[in-house]
Simulated scan of single mutants.
Amino acid sequence: MSVLVDIIAGARPNFMKIAPILHAMQARRDAGGPLRWRLVHTGQHYDPRMSGEFFAQLGIPAPDVNLEVGSGTQAEQTAGIMVGYERLLMQQRSACCLVVGDVTSTMACAITAQKLHVPVAHVEAGIRSGDWTMPEEINRLATDAVTNWFFTTSEHANANLRRAGVEESRIFFVGNTMIDTLLANMERLRPPPFVETLGLQPGGYFVATLHRPANVDSAEGLARLLHAIGNGCRGLPVVFPVHPRTARTLRELPGFPANLLLVDPQPYLEFNWLVKHAKGVITDSGGITEETTVMGVPCLTLRDNTERPETVELGTNELVGTDPAKLAPALARLFDGQWKQGRVPPLWDGRTGERIVATLERLLACG
């Protein structure tokens, strides 16, 4: 008996989340397990630095299908993904569409599958920021509205789903596949070449990432944030991998603080080496707050809300907000050694992929 599962990936955050599932599914397949996969890359992130290197570093096999959607507006990408994935399902139907995270590909494929009566499993289901100005929040809500089986990272996510009326029997608290990937690769992390060139020392620099529209789409607003970061870090180097969206606005700025070191988006192993050895991380990302929590690195999030409250309540993350004036006091506490230690949330233990595959086998192969 062989059961086909579509595994959807379209953007950089997805790749880290699917790797443990693919590895666990292959291990079970080698042992006679019933599940086989079809890896569908939507092409939502088309820059090889944002996808190709991740596949190689994380041992992800070449996609079975690439929808090659490419760039475009939210609506254009959504439409392209839905048309391409519908065509694929009509050629060969799968028994399940497994989507991860909260990118456009996640939402588009979930809706397409459900309209063709293919069950949807959502990994990282139930997380909520409550902020409808974020495209990711709309993707989460739409995806979970058509999901059959919910794989969750935290009790917060479980509670969100229960409040939305999801039956307990469809909620599976499995942990965090992002952390599976991090723990599996911790010994393989390696410094990018510029670390030696610039003489960066462990604990002697910061890492910053910015890509949220509210932070980076306005040249004036981005300039204020960058100056607050540069000044608040007290002259220490700030390694700043520049997201393509941020790069567009940076070109409009007359300049930025001298201690900001602008670099290209980094591959997985190099980026997490930088995070692991940083004095702190300043970000508006959600996923990075999970990685800093597990690595015990102070994290300052330039947002007013988070869909990952466990990183604040249990971990090393703190919501600083989007007002640049609030950054200096937070950094002062870090420099004064007053940052919280944090601890690792439940089931963030490196075995989430195995739990997901075991559950899927039960749901799909055994009824």
Score class of each variant (00 low, 15 high):
T197L: 14
T197Y: 08
T197P: 03
G203P: 10
G203D: 11
G204V: 07
G204R: 15
V207Y: 05
V207E: 07
A208K: 11
A208C: 15
A208F: 00
A208I: 01
A208R: 10
A208L: 10
T209R: 10
T209A: 07
L210Q: 09
H211A: 15
H211C: 14
R212Q: 11
D217T: 12
S218R: 11
S218A: 14
A219W: 08
A219P: 11
L222C: 05
L222Q: 05
R224Y: 03
L225F: 05
L225R: 13
L226N: 10
G230N: 09
G230H: 13
N231H: 14
C233T: 11
R234M: 14
G235W: 00
G235T: 00
L236Q: 13
P237N: 02
F240M: 10
V242T: 01
H243Y: 10
P244N: 13
R245K: 02
T246G: 03
T246Y: 05
A247F: 09
R248G: 02
T249C: 02
R251S: 13
E252T: 06
E252Q: 10
L253N: 10
L253M: 06
G255E: 01
G255T: 05
F256G: 05
A258C: 02
N259T: 14
L262K: 04
L262T: 03
V263S: 06
V263H: 05
D264W: 00
P265F: 01
P265M: 03
P267G: 10
Y268V: 00
Y268T: 01
E270W: 06
F271M: 09
W273G: 07
W273M: 03
K276D: 08
K276C: 04
H277V: 00
A278D: 05
